[in-house]
């Protein structure tokens, strides 16, 4: 029974990683940039949700939507201001900018409101416990998982069935050719950032409700781990990010369950390095050879 309980714990944690990883994987797929600031968009989303619930007294769903909307705009702003001028710069320059943006968001928020944590109110969602054969599953865990899956299905639909999704895939495949075919590359990239950031915002609100405590540096570690999840599933592949996130959550839970909870964060990075060395295309990726 303990093992099943641990799997449940892991899946709840993994769903949050998965939601953040979806944004990572989309952005990387289209502009080949590790958007370090993505974890901080997640944090901003969490704070927006917090203020929507406490100050504006809104319900969970409206807080979630407000947070997603705000993050979408925020993500586009980041892209337009910081990343767009660097489209043709080197990868290193882009990566350093991403680190800079991440530090700026974190410290900007600390400057505005201080570094102290904030606690989500306890009564946002009814809290029920389901006891199934001695395994207790909270209604929140189920909610997290279902929200993640619903969002992933919507995302999959958008990417594969809509015009903008087609444009995204085209830009991701070859942005020069896409441009020649009349696709507005700039708008497509902005749309990608908007969608990815909205997902991060949703993850932020869900995180707040599930883990209560939020603070300006909360996005750093989940952000990095979500990147690990994205790499694990094969970067640029949407179902891959989902599976990678869940898998990483479960791995972490099992490590803790074995009594090595202090090694948990280390394991995520060991997984990352092993994946990068032995399976750089990820679980779902196609192997690509670099051509000269």
């Amino acid at each position: 029974m303990e093992l099943i309980q641990q799997l449940v714990n892991g899946i709840s944690l993994g769903s949050i990683y998965a939601l953040i990883a979806l944004g990572y994987t989309m952005v990387y797929g289209i502009v080949k940039l590790i958007n370090f600031a993505h974890g901080d968009v997640f944090m901003v989303g969490s704070f927006v949700g917090f203020y929507a619930i406490t100050v504006m007294d809104l319900s969970f769903i409206s807080a979630l939507l407000i947070s997603m909307f705000t993050c979408a705009i925020f993500g586009v702003l980041i892209e337009r201001i910081a990343y767009k001028p660097l489209r043709n710069a080197t990868r290193i320059a882009a990566l350093i900018t991403a680190i800079g943006v991440s530090l700026l968001i974190e410290n900007g928020l600390i400057y505005i409101r201080g570094a102290q944590p904030e606690a989500y109110p306890n009564n946002v969602l009814p809290m029920d416990k389901l006891d199934i054969f001695g395994v207790s599953i909270s209604s929140q865990s189920i909610l997290i998982l279902s929200v993640s899956i619903i969002l992933m299905i919507i995302l999959q639909f958008v990417v594969h069935k809509t015009k903008i999704g087609k444009a995204m895939r085209a830009v991701s495949f070859d942005s020069e050719a896409a441009k020649l075919m009349g696709i507005n590359v700039n708008n497509t990239i902005s749309a990608t950032f908007a969608i990815g950031s909205a997902l991060a915002g949703a993850a932020g609100v869900i995180f707040g409700i599930y883990y209560i405590k939020i603070e300006p540096l909360m996005g750093v570690l989940p952000g990095l781990k979500a990147f690990v999840a994205a790499v694990l599933g094969g970067i640029g592949i949407i179902p891959g990010a989902m599976v990678g996130g869940l898998l990483l959550g479960v791995i972490e839970a099992l490590v803790s369950a074995a009594g090595y909870s202090l090694w948990r964060d280390g394991v995520a990075f060991i997984v990352l390095i092993l994946i990068l060395i032995f399976l750089p295309q990820g679980l779902f990726g196609k192997n690509k050879r670099e051509k000269v």
């Binding site: 910081a82 001028p85 660097l86 710069a89 320059a93 882009a94 350093i96 900018t97 680190i99 800079g100 943006v101 991440s102 530090l103 700026l104 974190e106 410290n107 900007g108 600390i110 400057y111």
Partner: peptide, 15 residues
């Protein structure tokens, strides 16, 4: 403030 300056310098420098 230090970190804000650092991060702004990083971003502006790269741009």
């Amino acid at each position: 403030t230090r970190m804000i300056i650092y991060s702004l310098v990083l971003i502006l420098m790269m741009i």
